[in-house]
């Protein structure tokens, strides 16, 4: 999936409603953050819930293509260590299929 724009305290709920059900379908989940310009702690919470869902269901989760501001928030919060993060989509897909 490719979330667009700002994921703030208001719009994080929309991301949660779309992202979390993806783990019920099997396969693997790649969140392409190329079009996400902004993320707050509310958005990080949703991704953390996704990581937990991934662990519980065995559906792999990877993130890719972070913009600079989003990358900075991941680094400061320590969340960068909690996810498989890839610089581009081909590498992420290859890792998920490996």
């Amino acid at each position: 999936m490719t979330p667009h724009g700002r994921v703030d305290s208001n719009s994080a709920r929309d991301l949660e409603e779309v992202l979390l059900p993806l783990f019920d379908d099997g396969g693997s989940v790649l969140v392409d953050l190329d079009k996400m310009s902004y993320i707050s702690s509310a958005g990080l919470r949703v991704l953390l819930l996704a990581a937990r869902r991934s662990k519980a269901t065995g559906v792999s989760l990877a993130l890719c293509c972070m913009s600079k501001p989003v990358e900075e928030v991941f680094a400061i919060s320590g969340f960068a260590k909690l996810f498989r993060i890839h610089p581009d989509r081909p590498e992420a897909l290859a890792a998920l299929q490996a």
Binding site: D8, S9, Y38, S40, S41, A42, P69, E72, V73
Partner: peptide, 21 residues
Amino acid sequence: GGGIAHALNLSLDELLANTIS
């Protein structure tokens, strides 16, 4: 710069979300 706008908006977002919620 964009970095300052980002810092301000993130701070506003977090503080206001706590207040409002």
